[in-house]
Simulated assay, not measured.
Amino acid sequence: MSDRDWTDELTCFGKVAASVSHEFKNHLATIREKAGLLSDLLAMQARGKDVSLARITQLALDVQKRTVHADEAVKRLNRFAHSVDHLREEVNMTEAVELATGLFFRLATMRGVELKVQPADDVMVLGSPFAIQQMLLACLDACTLTMSEHSVLGIGLLKKDGDAVVRFEGCKTVESAPLVALTQAQHARCDSGPDWFELHIPMA
């Protein structure tokens, strides 16, 4: 998968939907498996067999945990889908980064890369919520493609010279003409170094 996949709006939307649906399907498969085991244990108990209460409790907790994760995945997809509701509005970049990393988590994990978001104060920009998500996802894709397994991509947010700057650290040099073109079309820009990459979005 190349970063070119993320610079087309419809393809970007489709890839997010596909990734989240795979994640949701995995959660449902685990819930189904655990629920089946729980049902079997309860049936054994009903027949008078000795069944570990601790095992039943653990299975119930596993189902509950997976249900929470599945719910979070659907909520992320819902937020992303509604990012097209307004062409231009005030966007909280802290929340935008959180959403983008959540949406990209599965793909990063498949590449063996851990996404580590640094705590940051709220930074507001005026722009297209969907375009901002698209740029963030394209950046995450481009950065993780340069990294080896068991790597960590640090993600920070700061204000600099009137811009909201999303800084990615731990990647190798990112060279992507489509990504540069995408950011320029949104009046944003990219900057990079040997082990870092920055996305600059004007705050006004």
Rank of each mutant, 00 (worst) to 15 (best):
A185G: 09
L140N: 02
W196D: 02
A204C: 06
E90I: 14
H187G: 00
E198M: 13
K172H: 12
A188D: 03
E90K: 15
P178K: 08
H22C: 10
E9R: 12
M44R: 10
G14H: 03
L153Y: 03
S192L: 12
H187E: 10
M124G: 00
F197R: 02
I56V: 12
E169N: 10
S83K: 04
E198Y: 13
G48L: 00
S52K: 15
R189Y: 12
R66N: 07
W6S: 01
D8E: 09
A73W: 02
A138R: 04
L115K: 00
A142E: 02
S151W: 04
L140S: 02
V51Q: 02
A18S: 10
P178R: 05
T173L: 11
A131M: 15
V166S: 03
S148M: 09
A164H: 09
A108N: 04
R106W: 06
S148L: 09
G102K: 03
L182G: 06
M44T: 01
S2E: 13
L87Q: 13
L53H: 13
G162H: 08
E90G: 09
R32Q: 11
L107E: 11
S192C: 12
E114K: 14
P194T: 11
R66L: 06
D191W: 11
L53S: 14
F24A: 09
P119W: 13
V113R: 06
K34G: 04
Q184S: 08
V68A: 13
H82M: 07
E90A: 15
D195N: 13
L153P: 03
M93H: 10
E72T: 14
L37G: 10
L41M: 14
L38F: 05
E98C: 05
L37V: 03
F24D: 03
L61I: 03
I132D: 01
M124C: 00
L53G: 14
E23H: 13
P119C: 14
H187A: 11
A70H: 04
M93D: 05
A181F: 11
E149V: 02
L103E: 05
H150W: 07
G36M: 13
